[in-house]
Design a protein around this nucleic acid. Structure first.
Lengths: 330, 330
DNA sequence: ATGAAAGCGCTAACAA
DNA sequence: TTGTTAGCGCTTTCAT
């Protein structure tokens, strides 16, 4: 398995250029010659060395993927979407976690350049000018994934979180709820959560209703449930929108602890459609974010950029959907 | 950012060999010369081209990671463990999903060779001789991760699933349960599940108890719950061990549907310690599998192999633990 | 349709 | 301590 293109050429009785041609299908080779080359390749179990190929051609067929944390809920599904499409187009992915730290993120762009990746798929909580500058410097084609660029400087694939939250409000209003509260963690920590909150507020105001917030110290079940329970015991809304599924489970259990029946006394609507929404009782209605599609579409987008195919828009908005389940069916 | 080592040499007024030396700290360079080189590097924003370096040195500082599916529950955490340790040792990872298909798995080993990875971290459901042969052919250092090699041919990092199941049985017996049933999907599909079942059987027999099985058509909540419910309504055990967390949630809800109180009427013990064990009521006692550690330890193992450090054993067994929660506290 | 030869950007002997 | 030089295994002109 460590024969070189030169060995193949010798065995086939041709020049390495010809071997290269049949390997890459880059020029017409006589059928018979081609067969000899193919035979030699099989006989030697030859495999082209991608590193040498990368150096010579300046294309590595690998793309860098920078995520805050693969192990975060359903981020893996997004990565899976990337990898599936990458494979279709014969790309490999180099995966790195940034933990959302700006210096790590910019460092990573640099090391990805060193690796000579052909392009970059980038995810972060909130896009900063520093990110954009680094991309610029590295001169790498970049596509943002589940990351918003309000100024549209970088191609991106996203859903419209604000609109999704507005849809949630309208959905609950259509069910007769007027008193809808929004459950989220602290503000300014999670751009996604903030966008949803903004949508909630706007929809409420447009409907002439008073927004009302239940803020938890952290976006995490154990601490959230106690916090929600105490706030709920003071003032009971008719419906709750949680900024993600885990908070929604906390809201559900907090409600049940207070003997509120879900959905009869209070309806609950979540965000993200992770698996846990179907492991609760009742199951949770949730806004589904197309995690796999984020990755798949972004990667496809990048292949277009790299293959200079025609691009229509630089900002792809993926559709979101309300998955209705028992928590809002009354 | 596309200056070459030659440019740096010219600007610093030295030879490229010297630049290479300061870059890799591979020989002593006079302080003053070094400074000139460093200045030139900074001035040119020079970054070494890892592909050229890889070709010349035959080391790419990247390792291939082959998993069945990153998006499978908590597989991402394992990958995260790999990546964290990889970064400590300046490695990058190329991630690929095999979907557990043998041909894809062996193909991937080949393309990983093409990419000239320095080593391989490999995960699969059940290790076959074909896998071993492929590793042999590719001549790549391989470490198995959360994958058992009963014959010890390939270095591996694992827990002792059989022992874990035995521990589970003994734990429940110590709580006064004699009638313990094992909940799992069909046999022969999941090597992990089978090993656990074997441990369960052995522990029961050693205690002179009759093993009893609840088999579900699929390892998936929605279909499992109905199946478990109907089997439970015929014969009620005092405790249930489920071969994974999702089945345990199904067992929990099935029990509750039949008005069995958990843990008073029936105790439930799960496997894997995924997040959902703490989103149920009551929370589930579970055997924790150190997902992150699998990855971290396996990667560290590989770095030892690559750096020819001393290795003591080729089969690392990681400790498992019983996380006791309310579902077995009575 | 095929071959010869010059790189790609680096590392690693070997000299000096 | 530093420089010269020969590759690493390919792709890609340019000839033929």
């Amino acid at each position: 398995m460590s024969a070189t293109i030169y060995d193949v050429a010798r065995v086939a009785g041709v020049s390495m250029a010809t071997v290269s041609r049949v390997l890459n299908d880059t020029a017409v080779v006589k059928e018979e010659t081609k067969k000899r080359v193919l035979d030699a390749i099989a006989q030697l179990s030859y495999r082209p060395n991608a590193v040498a190929r990368g150096l010579a051609s300046k294309k590595t067929k690998t793309i860098g993927v920078i995520v805050p944390d693969v192990s975060a809920t359903y981020m893996a599904e997004l990565v899976r979407g990337i990898e599936d499409v990458a494979r279709m187009y014969q790309y490999h992915i180099i995966l790195s976690n940034s933990d959302g730290q700006l210096t790590r993120e910019t460092d990573l762009v640099g090391t990805m350049w060193e690796k000579q990746v052909d392009g970059l798929l980038f995810m972060t909580m909130e896009l900063r000018q520093e990110h954009v500058d680094t991309f610029e410097q590295a001169q790498l084609p970049v596509v943002l994934c589940r990351t918003d660029d309000p100024e549209g400087r970088i191609p991106s694939v996203n859903i419209d979180n604000k609109q999704a939250a507005k849809d949630a409000v309208n959905f609950l209003m259509a069910k007769g709820s007027g008193k809808i509260a929004f459950v989220s963690g602290p503000e300014g920590v999670n751009a996604l959560s903030d966008a949803r909150k903004a949508g909630y507020i706007q929809a409420m105001q447009e409907a002439g209703l008073e927004p009302s917030y239940i803020m938890t110290p952290r976006e995490e079940y154990a601490t959230a449930i106690a916090s929600i329970r105490s706030q709920l015991s003071v003032d009971r809304p008719q419906a709750l929108i949680a900024s993600n599924d885990e908070l929604a489970v906390a809201a559900l259990h907090a409600s049940q602890d207070l003997q509120f029946r879900v959905p009869n006394d209070v309806m609950i609507l979540a965000f993200d459609n992770t698996k846990i929404t179907q492991l609760t009782r009742p199951h949770l209605t949730t806004i589904s974010q197309p995690m796999y599609d984020y990755g798949a579409v972004a990667m496809r987008f990048l292949t277009k950029l790299l293959g200079d195919e025609q691009i229509s828009t630089y900002t792809v908005i993926l559709p979101h959907q309300i998955e209705e389940r028992a928590s809002t069916m009354k």
